[in-house]
Design a protein around this nucleic acid. Structure first.
Lengths: 262, 262
DNA sequence: CTTGTAATTGCACGTTTATGCACGTATTGT
DNA sequence: ACAATACGTGCATAAACGTGCAATTACAAG
């Protein structure tokens, strides 16, 4: 068995079993413990797994989970959320999309401003729990885990009763040619439908979404009314956006804070 | 079992059960008490849990990730959640109510059991996020903050498409005369409606709900099929329940663990 | 084909970590 | 106040660890 082959096997095994015991694998493969330990050490150094006494475990699922869930939001997303929140006037009815970028809006909402917020994301609804001055309307449906939003026929049906001032749309790809795109077909339909249920649709486009396209088209850029962009977005891109008729909102720059740990 | 693996297991267990008894776990894992105590000591030092005499408890209400808002679930609620989760068979479609008691069910669900769970609580939906083998259907509506559930006409409309095997109903008052009651009229209507959308309705009645009545009637006791009760419920009360035709499920008793701090 | 080099593997060695037991102390419930 | 239980500490043993080294293999250059 080749060395690299064995390493792949170890990772695969780790994925399947959730754990690796060095000694067991060594005898199973007819190799010395040292060899397996060496492999594990190298894989750990490459960040592919978490080395522990006696074997190995998946690379800190707990940590990865926390970052995913509580969302160490990128500076970019945070800035955009702040700018978008500033666009919401008292007593307006707004639709807030799922996804980490849209979630940032909530952190920047004034605690005492009266609004009605419509969302198809349970995460957003839970985050809005403490905001007592906000009426929350949830669109139900089948939960699509990847972005934690409700989709499907039930969603479309439920939103048909709503007409909002603004829809803040999260997106995974914004490109001048490909338009607004996302990674799930059902989600694309729901986003499109939501945009039809609001007077204005404002796209939230954090840095990493620009000039990229995902498999499923939500709608062309011209169907949106505005777009919120990171302060460091290139002039070229902002001009492209303006040329197709979008209002461009540039998020205000904030001093960078870095986290040395991890 | 690897040491680190065991520590993760302990934390996971703590999340699910809300408590850890050192001696019990030690014998369950076939290790000496010392080893488990050492683990708990180290996890406590790392701030992952709260060490107490006899075992461990979640570090603080703030940290226990599911239990966040409403504080640590009482032992009673946890027991009841465990028992209720045991009543859910693979591939069943069940409706899970909002509220802290019903939320406990989720902690006790097997990670790999296939089910469809219908809920009108965004909190429940978010908690179910990691359970990939479970299809989650959300009932939308207007968010009623006190118990974090969606209510209103939209809810009733959405649930009309569903017929489930079992509805686990949380409640704020259970009384032989007053029946099943709750503190909000709209919520009462929704609970009643949900109960009509399931073959069986099983009531979750933690200790403090017994022999009390809230202002709004959900339905009479006889309309339910069963009730899950705390292990320390009086014989008198369980007999009352049986007499009106309910299946009574008694949660298993666990020894007490107290936390001195706070 | 031969030789040299790098990679791989197993072993020996001393070090670190994990575990269980013993013992004295602290906490709890009666 | 007393008995039972849980606790922490120190210690001994065994397992796992990393490092250095030598033997082997793979492979490319000559």
């Amino acid at each position: 068995m080749l060395t690299q082959e064995r390493k792949t096997y170890l990772l695969d095994l780790l994925n399947r079993e959730g754990r690796i015991e060095a000694k067991t694998i060594a005898s199973a493969l007819g190799l010395s413990d040292d060899t397996i330990r060496r492999d594990l050490r190298e894989l750990a150094a490459a960040g592919k797994l978490q080395r522990v006494h006696g074997g190995a475990l998946p690379r800190s699922p707990a940590d990865a989970d926390l970052i995913k869930r509580h969302g160490i939001a990128s500076q970019s997303k945070n800035e955009i959320g702040k700018t978008a929140a500033g666009l919401i006037k008292p007593n307006q009815v707004v639709i807030i999309d799922g996804g980490t970028t849209a979630l940032q809006i909530i952190n920047h909402l004034p605690k005492d401003q009266k609004n009605t917020i419509v969302t198809h994301s349970p995460t957003v609804a839970v985050a809005l729990g403490p905001y007592e001055s906000i009426t929350v309307i949830m669109i139900g449906g089948i939960l699509f885990r990847h972005s934690m939003v409700n989709v499907g026929a039930a969603s479309l049906d439920a939103m048909s009763h709503i007409y909002a001032d603004t829809y803040f749309m999260g997106i995974t790809g914004v490109d001048i040619d490909a338009g607004l795109t996302t990674g799930d077909l059902e989600e694309a339909h729901v986003k499109k439908a939501l945009s039809l249920r609001a007077a204005d649709t404002i796209v939230l486009a954090s840095m990493e979404k620009l000039n990229t396209a995902s498999p499923y088209m939500v709608m062309p850029l011209v169907s949106a009314s505005g777009i919120v962009l990171d302060s460091s977005t290139s002039k070229t891109f902002t001009n492209q956006m303006r040329r197709v008729g979008l209002d461009v909102y540039i998020s205000s720059k904030e001093p960078k804070l870095e986290n040395k740990n991890q």
